[in-house]
């Protein structure tokens, strides 16, 4: 089992986390089209390499995390609290 370095709790077994996959920006619900919305819902790049993913530390700090992980090596180069990422994005 891989370790995921939680920014709050330190390295923990991946089994403590829920994997929520690659996140995409939510289209404006007022103007979106079915094509655009379903791309948001179902289409992921499934990259062989670095991806940005959401994980939820359900058995720990209960924080949603934004994880940059290499899908081939499982190397994790950055994990940040989702609130921090969302606030930066809103700026």
């Amino acid at each position: 089992m891989m370790l995921l370095p939680c920014p709050w709790c330190g390295p923990r077994n991946a089994g403590e986390f829920k994997y929520a996959g690659e996140g995409g920006a939510r289209p404006d619900p007022a103007t979106t089209t079915p094509e655009e919305w379903r791309r948001y819902l179902y289409f992921h790049a499934n990259t062989r390499g670095w991806v940005t993913e959401s994980w939820y530390h359900g058995a720990g700090c209960r924080r949603w995390l934004v994880v940059e992980r290499h899908t081939l090596t499982h190397e994790v180069r950055e994990v940040r609290d989702a609130v921090q990422v969302a606030r930066e994005g809103a700026r």
Partner: peptide, 10 residues
Amino acid sequence: ALRTSVAAVV
């Protein structure tokens, strides 16, 4: 103080 899984219970 920490939170984790103990015997599969948070």
